[in-house]
Every structure is written in C-alpha cells, then in structure tokens.
Design a protein around this nucleic acid. Structure first.
Lengths: 110, 110
DNA sequence: CTGTATCCTGATAGATACTG
DNA sequence: CAGTATCTATCAGGATACAG
C-alpha cells in the first residue's frame, strides 16, 4: 500500500543503485550478476543482490536461469521496467539543466 | 556534491513531503506555514519546517517575510521550483498508469 | 504564528563471512 | 558464479517540548 502514485513510483526507483541498474540493463539486455557488480563498482555483493531482488518483485526486472553449471543467470528489463526509462531520463535531464556541473561527480545521461 | 545528475534531482524531491509541498505551493502562491500544515495533515510541525528549509536552501522555494506582528510569512515557488512540476507530473503519470489503483491510499494528480 | 532543540525509532546501506 | 546471514553505521522521519 502506497501513500499515492508519486510515492508508489518513487518506491521502485528510490534505492541508491536502482537507476544505475536500470540503465545497465537497458544498455545490455543480457547482463549477468558479476558484470553488473563490476560496472556498478563499488557496489557490495549483498546490496546488489537485494536491489535486484526488489526490482524483480516490483516487476521491473526479469531473471533468466540457464540451468548451467557453473551457474549462468541473466537479468533483463521487463516491459514495465523499460517504460520507466523515459521517466528516469526526464529526471536526469532536469538535473543536467538545473544543477551546476561542478556539483556532480559523474553524469549518467547525455 | 552529488553522485550524478539523477541523484542530484532526487535529493531535492526525495523527502516524504516535498512533492506535496511543491503541489500545494504551485496551486497557491501565497501560502503560509499554518495553511501548509493544515493541508498536509498529519505532517509534524518540525518536519514541515525542516523540509521547507531544505527546499529554500535548494532554491526551490522562496520565503517572504512581511515583517508584521503577529508574524506573517508566505512561501512560494521559485522559477526553479516551478520547472520541477512537469518532472514530478511525469513521475505521477507513470504511477497512475502502472500501479494498481487499489494499492494507492490517495491520488495527487489527475 | 513561526521556528528550533532533544530524544527515539525504523529503514537503508555497507563490511564481512559463509553456502551451494 | 550467484545468493544469504550477521552485525554495524547512518540517516530520515516523528513525538514532544521550548522560544522568539
């Protein structure tokens, strides 16, 4: 149960790393756990695991198990997850337009 | 210093009540502290004070002191604050389109 | 009417180690 | 390679009381 539609949306993207994950999966639809962790350095193993799990529960991410040994699992965005990209882009665009660049450690978009 | 442009924007709107405040000030550009607290019930006095203060520091809200006795202070959105409205609307729209209505206690937009 | 100070609690994130 | 369990640190939000 969410307070309102804004809160509901925010819950899904609030996590410190979720947008990064969203963008990673958007640019490569066959991403494995370790690849994510490498690209999102310095994210912790446990945190990445938690955030992905939440995104799966929220229906944003899909988990595909190849049932191979050694384990081979790929993550990709669901349609719902993809539909979130334009919204996130809008947030980024506003940030680029209104926040002084010197205040940013790095940029995601553009 | 923000991690990136997304984080920077999120910092400004992340607070539990900031969007509500944003919408309140957007619908009435001459809002006083007490009016805000009434409309945002059950927000705490202290929390409202903190959130407004942060929004002033972030350049989203303007504080106009009429120097009257008893105290008379009005808050309104700055241009920067107003420019945030479309972004917030986009987030709400996505929520309305993708979250089951039965999961929402109330709705802000529409 | 508007604002601040104290204290408390719950959620989030991170360090580290362990399992199949 | 992928995932879980513990323990700890930090912070946002809130109850309450006090102040100009």
């Amino acid at each position: 149960m969410y307070a309102n539609e804004f809160d509901a949306t925010m819950q899904l993207i609030r996590g410190k790393w979720k947008i990064r994950i969203l963008y990673e999966l958007n640019s490569d639809q066959h991403t494995r756990f370790n690849a994510l962790q490498r690209n999102l350095n310095p994210i912790t193993h446990k945190i990445l695991s938690e955030q992905i799990q939440q995104m799966i529960n929220d229906g944003l991410v899909n988990r595909h198990d190849f049932h191979e040994q050694p384990l081979h699992i790929e993550y990709n965005l669901t349609t719902k997850g993809e539909s979130l990209i334009p919204v996130v882009d809008a947030i980024c665009d506003w940030g680029l337009a209104n926040i002084d660049q010197s205040e940013l450690k790095q940029t995601l978009c553009e």
